[in-house]
Nucleic acid binder design. Structure first.
Lengths: 155, 155
DNA sequence: ATCAGCGCTGGACAACCTGCTCAGCCGAGA
DNA sequence: TCTCGGCTGAGCAGGTTGTCCAGCGCTGAT
């Protein structure tokens, strides 16, 4: 119910060469085309691969500033707050969390000044009691999955 | 130097239908194939689309627990800490931030118990002074980009 | 007003890939 | 020993890609 070495190598190939074809992948993996095709289908069927959505860079869209906001929510207002935040395009991700605060969201903005506008919009909702924002300066480790895939393949 | 309505619709199509072909996309967009092809190439050349990496679900890989850790770093140890964290496969993302703490990282683990092992490994490095972990319970807004694309297209 | 540049259209071509099917082979487990 | 599941190598029709080309309309510059 986990992945093997071949799956891992296939995922690596797909990650490294965006629009590689199944045929080309099978050649590089040294297996028959049918095998590569079957593996890929199974990975998708099992939900290991959710999709191949285009990886869009917000910075190239004019939103070079990223920030994380921790939100404290008024009791029982969770549902309304979620809907509110889902309606803000600059909210790229939202999690409910344990510990300090109740929610954590990833935001983007056109500039540091523009971030103020985004935050005002985010917290401008009665269900949100408090918020703390951390602006991202550098991104030493961009979103990655390959090292984990390799680790998962080793068992 | 930004994107127009057609670009936005193309991105939406690509996001919604993972492995759609350029030809099929051009049909749905109601434009000539060459146009869709040229737009796609430009979006990639401009860096708007970074790639089409497979979207791998850590949960399906056996890592259903996600957490965010805020780290406080000893002065001048930044570089070593980055290298240390880059070597931990369960660290999916790392940012340096302003405000409380110096770094924020996204972690995954096989279970809540396993999270302890991951955190021990993350924090078991002399350059890291303190850490605070928030476990993700729900993910009301999964990573998304389309609403932002739509907003960017409106100007 | 005229011209050049640019993007879009519609069409064409060879080369390639996909989805599907089939027979044969091999190792693991009952 | 038999069966099942996964892999191989091969083939075929149909769709897609990369790459041309000529033509057209709009926009900005001379």
């Amino acid at each position: 119910m986990t992945i093997d070495e071949l799956d891992a190598r296939l995922l690596e190939l797909l990650a490294r060469h965006p629009r590689i074809t199944v045929l080309e992948a099978s050649r590089r993996l040294g297996v028959a085309r049918g095998t590569a095709q079957a593996r890929l289908e199974k990975l998708m069927a099992r939900g290991v691969i959710r999709g191949f959505g285009p990886d869009v860079d917000p910075a190239a869209l004019g939103y070079p500033v990223t920030a994380f906001a921790t939100l404290e929510i008024r009791q029982g207002q969770g549902e309304q707050v979620r809907r509110h935040l889902a309606g803000v395009p600059e909210v790229l991700e939202l999690h409910t969390i344990t510990g300090e605060g109740d929610m954590l969201c990833r935001l983007v903005a056109r500039s540091n000044a523009d971030l103020q506008r985004v935050i005002d919009r985010v917290v401008g909702f009665e269900g949100i009691l408090r918020s703390a924002t951390a602006i991202v300066m550098e991104n030493p480790v961009p979103a990655r999955i390959i090292p984990l895939v390799r680790a998962a393949a080793r068992d």
